[in-house]
Design a protein around this nucleic acid. Structure first.
Length: 467
RNA sequence: GACCCCAUCGUCUAGAGGCCUAGGACACCGGCCUUUCACGCCGGCAACACGGGUUCAAAUCCCGUUGGGGUCGCCA
């Protein structure tokens, strides 16, 4: 039997980092087994589901490259089928009508809780004659859950998990308005979609018991379950808006590369020995659900950044240039022309090894495109005393005659210059950097000069001399 | 509160009874490299929650304690 997995978010909010990881694990598992990975939008709560959320989820998934193998399934379109299954259960005597009013249930719940019970519904209508039914109450349909024995889930991650059936009450299958509940819909859709493995968050573990019972009652085989631990915030508490319960596009905006986020996410809970940098191809080969840990993991932005900087360094100069060209143009208020594009690509090797995020990459590349005269920051100004300016003057004369204009040639020329002036290289390199970049921190200054070109370099030198 | 799950350096983790005086990565601290900042390289700090068993031997198995998390809706 071929593997089919699914990621089934409810479109009531953004695709957060935990959801992204769940999707990733489902995707990896399916890929590893040569199966299929499907997307099911659980939009049966029509009040809370929004089109924006649906778009955000699908966009986020696409950005990460976790495309489903089939068009998404919208749960709301299977409602009829779901109630049909409930009605069959009703006919078979495995479900029943319950006429309790919401008020009655509230009282019942409070009583049960006070008594320390997990069975919040006491089964009032389980065996009661429907002839007793009040006329003013529309009934819900409840599942006649087994009272004795226990339900056991062989979870692929958590191992064998057992609960006494006496702990579980009769869940609602169909609401008073006839609409199916989540528990029912999940079971029917998982079956109808042929889901073989349900990989989902830990928070569903207790749901698995009831779903398993339902499968049993209908006579279907439940999927294999794998409940993966949740992701916590840096302080170990539940992920909240404060931490990282941000939409995935927030991470995009913060400048994380999708491959970096994917790599980071897969290592949260899953491991393959000591490997840290793992490509998607390798992950597909290596991914075993048994290797997923059982404890919750905290999100660590430092590590994410570190992984990100690795992928930035790995990315091709052209790819990165394409990525940041627009943002740079916005910053400098000037559209890119061919020459600027070429300059950016040329500058990339020196730039990318210094950046942990894309915004950082943008920030540090700006000086290449600022119009003259450059603004020199305070620190940089300090290296431009009179002596230094005079020296830069002499250097600029030398450089204006330099040919060819290569990094190596510039390097050689400046070294020779320092030798002739009997100064340490730093004495000229730092003022040179200040003049060309306006700052004290930049890529190698010979590389900078090379990228800037002979004319621009000389001009920038002259700018600081005349000021 | 009841039920369920979890527990190795600050963080992510390796570890499936002897290979562990517990390994890697991030972060942190030194050093090297060097025209700055990074990168890179070298070194350092740092953990098996606690208590009982089982065993010749336990981070690894069992029980308990403590701590953390999850679930208890006519939400999903």
């Amino acid at each position: 039997m071929s593997v089919i997995t699914r990621f089934s978010p409810s479109p009531t909010g953004l695709l957060h980092i935990g959801g992204a990881r769940t999707a990733l694990f489902n995707w990896l598992f399916a890929q590893h087994h040569g199966g299929k990975y499907l997307l099911r939008i659980e939009d049966t709560d029509r009040k809370r589901s929004t089109q924006e959320a649906i778009d955000a989820i699908i966009d986020g998934l696409n950005w990460l490259g976790l495309e489903a193998d089939q068009p998404p399934v919208f749960q709301s379109q299977n409602l009829q089928r779901h109630s049909e299954v409930a009605n069959n259960l009703l006919n078979a005597g495995k479900a029943y009508y319950c006429y309790c009013s919401p008020e009655e249930l509230t009282v019942m719940r409070e009583k049960a809780r006070a008594a320390g019970s997990t069975r919040l519904y006491d089964g009032t209508w389980r065996d009661r004659d429907t002839a007793d039914a009040p006329n003013d109450i529309k009934p819900v349909v409840r599942f006649k859950a087994p009272l004795d024995d226990e339900t056991v889930i062989q979870d692929l991650v958590q191992g064998s998990v057992t609960v006494a059936n006496s702990q579980l009450d009769d869940m609602i299958l169909l609401r008073a308005d006839g609409s199916p509940t989540y528990m029912l819909s999940v079971v029917v859709d998982d079956h109808d979609m042929g889901i073989t493995h349900a990989i989902r968050g830990d928070d569903h573990l207790t749901n698995a018991f009831r779903q398993s019972q339902l499968f049993q009652a209908i006579g279907w085989t439940p999927p294999e379950y794998a409940h993966i631990p949740l992701i916590h915030g840096p302080d170990g508490t539940k992920l909240s808006k404060r931490h990282g319960a941000l939409g995935i596009q927030a991470y995009q905006e913060m400048g994380y590369l999708p491959e970096a986020l994917l790599n980071y996410l897969m290592r949260l809970g899953w491991s393959h020995g000591d490997d840290e940098i793992i490509s998607l191809e390798q992950a597909i080969k290596w991914f075993e659900i048994q290797d997923v840990g059982r404890g919750a993991a905290r999100i660590d932005f430092d590590k994410l950044s570190s992984v990100n900087s690795h992928y930035i360094r790995e990315a091709s100069d052209q790819t990165l240039a394409n990525l940041i060209q627009e943002p740079i143009a916005e910053r400098i208020q000037k559209p890119f022309d061919t020459e600027m594009s070429q300059r950016l690509v040329m500058a990339m090797p020196g730039l990318k090894s210094r950046a942990k995020t894309i915004p950082e990459l943008i920030e540090t590349s700006l000086f290449y495109f600022y119009l003259r005269p450059l603004e020199i920051n305070e620190k940089a100004t300090k290296s431009l005393d009179n002596e230094a300016r005079n020296r830069l003057g002499r250097l600029s004369e030398l450089l204006s005659e330099l040919s060819p204009w290569s990094e190596e040639a510039i390097n050689e020329a400046v070294h020779k210059f320092a030798e002739n002036e009997d100064i340490k290289l730093g004495k000229i390199a730092q003022p040179f950097r200040a003049a060309l970049t306006g700052t004290t921190v930049s890529p190698g200054i010979f590389e900078v000069a090379m990228v800037l070109g002979q004319e621009e370099t000389i001009s920038r030198l002259k700018d600081v001399m005349t000021n």
